[in-house]
Amino acid sequence: MFYLGKNQLTGEAQPSPKAKHTDWTKRFELLEKTCKYPALKAFYQSGIVAGSTPISDVPMVALDFETTGLDVNNDSIVSIGLVDMSTTRIRCANAKHWLVKPDSQLRSKSVVVHGITHSAVADAPDFSTVIDQLLQHLQGKIIVVHHSPIERAFLNAALKRHINEGIEFPVIDTMALEARFCRKINKSIWRLLLSRKPASIRLTDSRTRYHLPYYRQHHAMTDALACAELLQAQCATHLKPDTPVNTLWS
């Protein structure tokens, strides 16, 4: 995942009411009919689990992008990491990692964050060459990210640039979930009495809360794994295995 400004982190990343009530099964059926690009059509065609499916039965894929910056109109993706998961297992054997040549210039500020340099991406393939593989890997699975606006917006923008079509999909956002679970803590009388700062919902801080090990950040593969582990920990700690998936996605 890319860098998140402080202001974005403390604000509770609430799913919009509209998104929450989206009937994704119907939405996918509709999008499948209107879209033209074959791999995208196949993505929608493979459908989506019913909203009432217990989270423990849902096939998922944790996804992370490194980008050249935060501006979705001027910045673009430089690397993609993803790993298949369920609430009980994360399968590294099915993990994928791509470096891609960004559509926009790498900025020195972002190079500092993810360590991907100009020379590293000089020989990397163009984003358009990984679209089919990426969409194929995502199909039939629910996408899991930490801080959904980034992955959602950047993937949508990149597809629009390359195939002239955007993409919509539901997302389980571990940051939004963490905000939800921390609300109780943040509103407790103890915090007011002790004037504690609100609990941080950054990836690393969230992981610490579940005694997950420290991982270095800003490598798309590792961040995807870190996010996957966090979701497992959140489910094991706060959720029953039969929690319907539509109470978690947005």
Binding site: R89, I90, C92, A93, Q232, A233, A236
Partner: peptide
């Protein structure tokens, strides 16, 4: 080995 592990969290 590293690329083929599975990961699981137990509370």
């Amino acid at each position: 080995v590293a690329n083929n592990v599975e990961v699981a969290y137990y509370r």
